[in-house]
Design a protein around this nucleic acid. Structure first.
Lengths: 245, 245
DNA sequence: TCAAAAGTGTTCCTTCTACACCCATGT
DNA sequence: ACATGGGTGTAGAAGGAACACTTTTGA
C-alpha cells in the first residue's frame, strides 16, 4: 500500500474495474487477493493521475494487470455513498497484520489520505482469457478468475460493484454487440451461444440463435473446424473488420 | 464565486445537472446566466460535501434551484478528460470583468482550488415545469428554459453534457417509464404523445401510440377534459399510485 | 349539420418462437 | 450403418405499423 497523494493522484476518487472473462462456459471475474494476512479479495482498482483522462486511467489499470493492449472498457456507474471509505477495511487489515503495522493511531495517520471517503468510478472490461497473462501470481494463489455465480466475499462494496457491472453488461449486450470481446479471434456459433447463455443466464434455441446472430451481419464465416468428434464440423467465425466504428 | 475547499467540499469533483422540462411541445433545458459581465451560460452545478452522498448532492443542487421536493434524477455519465478544467473559462471571465477582479496572477491564486482539473458527474433531472419556481431571476433575464433544439453556447463542455444527457434520456425512456415526470399530475394522451415526439424527435401514429401506452398498464383513466373546442373531449390520465417501486 | 379531434377496430406485415428435417463426421 | 451434433427451412404466435371507421363536441 502507498500514499497516493504523494504520487500526483486526484484525491478521494478511485477507479474499480470489473474484469470479465469467459471460461468453462461461465462468465468469470478477475479477483486479486491482497498481499496481506487475512482473506482480502479485491477488484482491480487504482487512482487517477492529475494529468490523465479517467478513461485512460481505467485502461492503464486493466492493461497493467492483464498485459494486453486491446481492451474493451465501459464506464458504467459511480459509487458515491458518503459512508464509502476504507476505514473498516484498514481496521481489519491492522487486526490481522500486527507485525506489519505499528500502533493504530500511527497507522491511521500514515494512511490518512487513504482513509478518506472515496468516490469510485466503475468500469467493466471484457477480455479474451486465452490472450491475457495468467491471472495467478506466486504470492497469492487465491488470485484468479471466479465464476460470477460463485463470487467470494470481496472488500468494501466490491460485491455490489460486480452486481451492477453485470447488470450494465446485460443491458448493453444487444445494443453494443460487445460479447465478442470475450471470445478469441475465431469461434464457433455454439461458443457464442454458450457465452450469451452464461451472461444472460437463460437458454437460447440453437437455430433461432444462429439466425439472430448471423442477421446482425457482423460475422464472417471461415473454414470448418474439425474437432475429431463423430459429427458435422461447425464453421468458424470471426468479426468482420470493415465495420464502421 | 467562492472557494469550495473551505466549505468542506470534495476537491476536483463537481456535479452538473441537466434539468429537463417540457413546455410548448418542446423539450427544454434549464440554463443559468452567471452573474458576471459577458455571456456565461451554465448548467446547474455544484460540489459534494465531505459527508454527503453523491446522489444527495445532486438532489440538493436541483432542489435548491427548482424549489420542489419530488425530483426524478438519473446519474448518466462521468466527464473525466484531463483537460477538463476551469482555466479557460476563468480567463475569459477576467477579461470581461476587469473591475471585479484584481491582477491575473492574484486571481488565479485566489481561485486556485477552482482552477484545478475537475471530474464532473453528470445527472439529468426531469421536472414538471408547471410546478417549479419561475426560472428567471431578476438579475439575469437570460436565465431560463431553452429549447433543446436551440441551445445557447454554454461554458466549458456543458453543451456536450447536454447531448449525452439527451442520449441517455432517450435510451431510458421506454425501459424506465420516466417521461411522466415531465408532465403535470394529470394529462391527456395527446400530451403524452407530443412529449414522446419531442424527446425522440420523431412522429408517432396516434392510435398505435395510445395502445402502446395504455398496454403498459401504468395509467389510470379519469374524467374527460372539456376544452371548449368543437370536438370530442379527451380523457385525462394520471399515473397509478399502487405501482411497486 | 358539419368540421375537428378523439376513441376503437381490423388488416397486414415483420419478427420471434417452436418444431421438423436434412447433412456432415468418425466409429 | 449409425449416433451425434450442426445447418437450414417452415408453420404458428406475437408484436408493431398502416388504414379505416365511429363517436363526441361546439359552432
Amino acid at each position: 500500500m502507498f500514499n497516493p497523494s504523494q504520487q500526483g493522484y486526484i484525491p478521494q476518487i478511485s477507479i474499480d474495474c470489473v474484469i470479465f472473462g469467459y471460461q468453462n462456459k461461465q462468465l468469470q471475474v478477475l479477483v486479486s487477493k491482497l498481499n496481506l494476512e487475512g482473506n482480502f479479495m479485491s477488484l482491480a482498482g487504482g487512482f487517477i493521475h492529475q494529468n490523465e483522462d479517467v478513461d485512460t486511467a481505467a485502461y492503464r489499470i486493466v492493461q497493467q494487470r492483464m498485459g494486453i493492449s486491446e481492451i474493451y472498457l465501459d464506464q458504467f456507474y459511480v459509487f458515491g455513498k458518503a459512508s464509502r471509505n476504507n476505514i473498516g477495511f484498514i481496521e481489519k487489515v491492522m487486526e490481522l497484520n500486527t507485525s506489519t503495522f505499528q500502533s493504530k493511531s500511527e497507522t491511521i495517520q500514515t494512511y490518512d489520505w487513504f482513509n478518506n471517503r472515496f468516490i469510485s468510478i466503475g468500469y467493466y472490461a471484457l477480455v479474451d482469457i486465452s490472450s491475457v497473462l495468467p491471472p495467478k501470481d506466486n504470492a497469492n494463489q487465491q488470485t484468479g478468475w471466479y465464476n460470477i455465480k460463485n463470487m467470494p466475499e470481496l472488500i468494501m462494496d466490491h460485491n455490489d460493484i460486480v452486481s451492477k457491472a453485470l447488470e450494465s453488461l446485460r443491458q448493453n449486450l444487444d445494443q453494443k454487440l460487445i460479447a465478442f470481446n470475450l471470445l478469441p479471434e475465431t469461434f464457433t456459433m455454439k461458443e457464442v451461444q454458450e457465452l450469451y447463455e452464461a451472461i444472460l443466464d437463460r437458454p437460447f434455441a440453437r437455430n433461432n440463435f444462429q439466425k439472430k446472430i448471423l442477421d446482425l451481419g457482423v460475422l464472417q464465416r471461415l473454414e470448418k473446424k474439425f474437432t475429431g468428434a463423430a459429427n458435422k464440423a461447425p464453421y468458424l467465425y470471426r468479426l468482420k473488420k470493415d465495420n464502421t466504428n
